[in-house]
Computed example of a mutant assay.
Amino acid sequence: MKSTIVNIAVALAITSLGACSRDDDHPGDKLELVFEDNTYQLTGVAKESNGRLLVNYPRWSDRYQYAVVTTSGKTGKVPYPDVSTNEWQHGLSGLNKWVCVQSVYFDDGGTLWVLDPSAPRLETIQGNGAKLVKMDKQSNTISRTYSFTNILADTSYVNDVRVDVKRQYAYLTESKGGGIIVADLADGRMRRVLQAHYSTISDPAYKFIIDGRELMKDGRPAKFNSDGIALTPDGDWLYYKPLSDDKLYRIKTEYLRDWNRTDGDLGSRVEDLGHFTTTDGMIFDAKGNLYLGDLQGYRIVKLDTNLKMTTIVKDDRLIWPDSYSIADGYLYISCSQIQKQPDYNNGIDKRTSPYTVYRIKI
């Protein structure tokens, strides 16, 4: 009888453990799974108000299918805007095709932007294809292309974008060399500023410890420079930070839009806001709250207008929360699992679950 009781207890324990490991069985769950891909690594997410959900896939390995898709249900996807635009090959021009898309973004006016650093495997820009693309809302065709060819080195990697619809300016981060790109969308002028400024370079002394060890690549600590970027609802302040340390910075956009200001002068205008989290992307809601990830702590946090930080959700499914989109009262979060890539694990792919997009009510 004693043996029977023990066996029943063990069976119940195993059943309980199995149930807890499932994504769809979290009592009181704050995270809602909206999309998953078990094969291809995604990074960016963009949710249209009362409309489509798009995700993008960078060309970081041979395991690659499409650059940008519109999702259908939790697993379905359709190449956006069509198959042809997703069919770039080495040796071809990258001006009118997706080469290596890093992020997708809906601005406050509902316009979709596609950011293509055009650097497969994070190496060098191919086909003069580094560009920011504005899509036409009605026809889903390319409305205008802003090329970075004249302002970036071939080794650059443009990472994320925010658009001020009212003033018609775009602000972008460059994550390899560090820096902010300012683009006048009306006349097409661009310039790169704050290159190698301390606010756009990851602190070399910071140990980026994730999953119990310092993230390493090729035997050296992995460092990611200016990456996350966010624009306040009024467009007056640009917030940004290097990825692999916990510092956060901001600068008034009026300074960035003044083309007569030198890089040295702009550097003196940067405000150091202090230590918060290591995050990839970040985004403001309409009330001025700033949402960031915590790559080391598997969290999403919120900074209010007084920079008070609170945890919104902590969950082991948030495996490298990457990009963010806000629509319909939800925060959408893509999880790219970058720390599990072979590059950071001596050539071993440590991913054991799908790449995902979740949403949380805010």
Results as ranks from 00 to 15, higher is better:
residue 5 I to K: 08
residue 6 V to H: 08
residue 6 V to Q: 08
residue 7 N to L: 15
residue 10 V to D: 06
residue 11 A to C: 14
residue 11 A to W: 15
residue 12 L to M: 13
residue 12 L to T: 14
residue 14 I to G: 08
residue 14 I to E: 13
residue 15 T to Y: 07
residue 15 T to V: 14
residue 15 T to F: 12
residue 15 T to G: 11
residue 16 S to T: 14
residue 17 L to I: 14
residue 17 L to N: 13
residue 19 A to I: 13
residue 19 A to Q: 15
residue 20 C to K: 14
residue 21 S to Q: 12
residue 21 S to C: 10
residue 22 R to A: 14
residue 23 D to Q: 12
residue 23 D to R: 15
residue 26 H to Q: 13
residue 26 H to I: 11
residue 26 H to L: 03
residue 29 D to Y: 02
residue 30 K to D: 02
residue 30 K to T: 04
residue 31 L to K: 02
residue 31 L to M: 07
residue 32 E to M: 11
residue 33 L to D: 08
residue 33 L to G: 09
residue 36 E to Y: 13
residue 37 D to R: 01
residue 38 N to T: 05
residue 38 N to L: 03
residue 40 Y to D: 14
residue 40 Y to I: 14
residue 41 Q to A: 03
residue 42 L to T: 04
residue 42 L to Q: 02
residue 43 T to F: 04
residue 44 G to N: 03
residue 45 V to R: 01
residue 46 A to M: 03
residue 46 A to P: 05
residue 47 K to T: 01
residue 47 K to F: 02
residue 48 E to W: 09
residue 48 E to F: 10
residue 50 N to P: 01
residue 50 N to S: 10
residue 52 R to D: 11
residue 52 R to A: 10
residue 53 L to H: 06
residue 53 L to V: 11
residue 54 L to V: 04
residue 56 N to G: 04
residue 57 Y to Q: 02
residue 59 R to C: 07
residue 60 W to H: 04
residue 61 S to H: 05
residue 63 R to S: 07
residue 63 R to P: 00
residue 63 R to G: 02
residue 63 R to C: 02
residue 64 Y to T: 05
residue 64 Y to R: 04
residue 66 Y to W: 13
residue 67 A to G: 06
residue 67 A to I: 01
residue 68 V to N: 02
residue 68 V to P: 00
residue 68 V to A: 03
residue 69 V to W: 00
residue 70 T to S: 09
residue 71 T to Y: 01
residue 71 T to L: 00
residue 73 G to R: 12
residue 73 G to H: 09
residue 75 T to A: 03
residue 77 K to A: 08
residue 78 V to H: 14
residue 81 P to M: 06
residue 82 D to G: 01
residue 82 D to N: 06
residue 83 V to N: 10
residue 85 T to I: 10
residue 85 T to D: 05
residue 87 E to R: 07
residue 89 Q to K: 10
residue 90 H to V: 12
residue 90 H to P: 01
residue 92 L to N: 05
residue 92 L to G: 03
residue 92 L to F: 07
residue 92 L to K: 13
residue 93 S to M: 07
residue 94 G to L: 09
residue 95 L to H: 13
residue 95 L to T: 15
residue 96 N to I: 11
residue 96 N to D: 12
residue 96 N to G: 07
residue 97 K to P: 02
residue 98 W to P: 00
residue 98 W to Y: 12
residue 99 V to E: 03
residue 100 C to N: 04
residue 101 V to P: 00
residue 102 Q to G: 04
residue 103 S to N: 07
residue 104 V to G: 02
residue 105 Y to F: 09
residue 105 Y to A: 00
residue 105 Y to D: 00
residue 106 F to V: 05
residue 107 D to P: 08
residue 107 D to Y: 02
residue 107 D to W: 00
residue 109 G to Q: 08
residue 109 G to D: 13
residue 112 L to C: 06
residue 113 W to G: 00
residue 114 V to T: 11
residue 114 V to G: 06
residue 114 V to N: 05
residue 115 L to R: 02
residue 115 L to W: 00
residue 115 L to E: 03
residue 115 L to F: 02
residue 117 P to Q: 13
residue 119 A to Y: 13
residue 119 A to E: 14
residue 120 P to I: 12
residue 122 L to Y: 10
residue 122 L to T: 09
residue 123 E to H: 12
residue 124 T to M: 09
residue 124 T to I: 11
residue 125 I to A: 09
residue 125 I to Y: 11
residue 126 Q to W: 01
residue 128 N to D: 15
residue 129 G to F: 10
residue 129 G to Y: 11
residue 130 A to Q: 07
residue 130 A to I: 01
residue 131 K to I: 11
residue 133 V to L: 06
residue 133 V to W: 01
residue 135 M to S: 11
residue 135 M to F: 08
